[in-house]
Design a protein around this nucleic acid. Sequence first.
DNA 1: CGTGTTTTTGTAACTTTACTACATTTAGAC
DNA 2: GTCTAAATGTAGTAAAGTTACAAAAACACG
Lengths: 286, 286
Amino acid sequence: MDLINRISSERSQFSKSERKVAELILHEPEQAIHRSIASLAALADVSEPTVNRFCRRLGCKGYPDFKLQLAQSLAQGTPYVNRDIEESDNVDQITQKIFDSTLNALNIARQSLDSRPITAAVETMVAARKIAFFGFGASASVAHDAQNKFARFDTPSVFSDDLLVQRMWAINSEPGDVLVCISHTGRTKALCEIAAIAYENKATVIGITAAHSPLSDSCHFTVSTNVPEDTDQYMPMASRIAQLVLIDAIIAGYTLQRGPEFREKLARVKEGLKGSRYSKQTTTKQ
Amino acid sequence: MDLINRISSERSQFSKSERKVAELILHEPEQAIHRSIASLAALADVSEPTVNRFCRRLGCKGYPDFKLQLAQSLAQGTPYVNRDIEESDNVDQITQKIFDSTLNALNIARQSLDSRPITAAVETMVAARKIAFFGFGASASVAHDAQNKFARFDTPSVFSDDLLVQRMWAINSEPGDVLVCISHTGRTKALCEIAAIAYENKATVIGITAAHSPLSDSCHFTVSTNVPEDTDQYMPMASRIAQLVLIDAIIAGYTLQRGPEFREKLARVKEGLKGSRYSKQTTTKQ
DNA sequence: CGTGTTTTTGTAACTTTACTACATTTAGAC
DNA sequence: GTCTAAATGTAGTAAAGTTACAAAAACACG
């Protein structure tokens, strides 16, 4: 959580003198970052060590570190107050909050990534004969997205959210084939079954799902994102965004691994898509 | 202009020793802000006054002031100087860079959002008789995702990436029906046609697309995200993530607008989904 | 309502950090 | 090669932040 908000929310835990410092900083944070500890202490009518202790209580290494964090907190625009959406919020507030929590979730996910399974995924996919992306519900659109990106590549790929289509693919799978199973919880029964079938057929099964879940047990390796809890109470939000970005990373890795000639192919695909679009010169009403 | 970019762009004007400092800071700006002038000077293999002069040349009052501005510059959504993926990057670096640029794009999108069309979208959808989400290519999976979320609601909704299905829906559309057209560029010919047909039939057409594009001309209103340029040269990455988050916001708005009884329904849907999953107690191999 | 204890706050010495003045080196011009 | 100017470094100084300890305030308990 952001420093300014922490000061604000932990206000009650401060001692009397520390509170004087807190009030001063919350009142004019922009000024505070340009002051020395002595000048700030004098202004708050407390001693310098009190200011120093105040900084430490907030988890900073000292006063300079505190100033640094405060400066960052200010630069961030920081509407970062209460992330939970409330009954009384208007659409603008809701939108900001959704963006904020997604940003927050992505940031946390980024920090807790393990590059080893990602590297393994890239290598497996570069070597793949054919690749399938399967998922249900919200994860179906993630799988859909992944396959869409692979459609530009020359490795045959399929997406399906159809139980029977998935099953048929799994039954027909062979060594060298890759199955990417996407699930937020890793507990969708149907998908676990499909993964197990493909596993038995010696296809490489990659899970983009929760670590140590039933699904991950049927995967050769699992790429997981460590998203805190989900933004929305009723459906996956931030977690699937993290999955999508993760897939972007895998795709970027794949593209790079394939070398420069491959990127030339991609450029040709992009060029070829132009025919389906109006050119930028087209006049519009506005 | 932002400090980091200034350092980068004024690189040529620095003297030899100052350039050493500049390189070091551009290479690891996060580290630099936690160092003392002495430690930074030693690392760059120059003297302390050289670092100090470097700071002054950039218009800072001194080294502490420089650190402060650098910290702010970093916190500010950080238009990272060179976040482009390079041939020599390993998978870990690629992943970090993809996450970084997505975070950056989302942050910029957040700051440039216009809440009016979002509010309009929420209101329109709450009042809708039935809703369709259409898109092609990468936007198809975005549309897919949106419909997936609406599947939990009681308003009938469809998704399609099939030209003919879309056309049939558009032809059958009536006042009170809502069509959400998703396109990154807003220039996909086929989708413009579909939008125009629905428009003529007096359905409400919402565009989640670029402002002032051919597609937005056939929409009653357009919700657009102002994502800088795309992360990846060959396919939409950050832009579609922004679209997804935008849709999340619309959905959150919709849910809230519908009131508490509606949220009870959602809770029931969630409960009902449990049957398709293994419960958390299920033992796993690990 | 005092006494012992704990917590809070301040004082003063100390350490670290940044800055300034000046000396030295380096690079370029003639 | 020598002179000049720019760049860089050295050493001393001033300022800032930190630590250790002592005083004061708040609190608990008889």
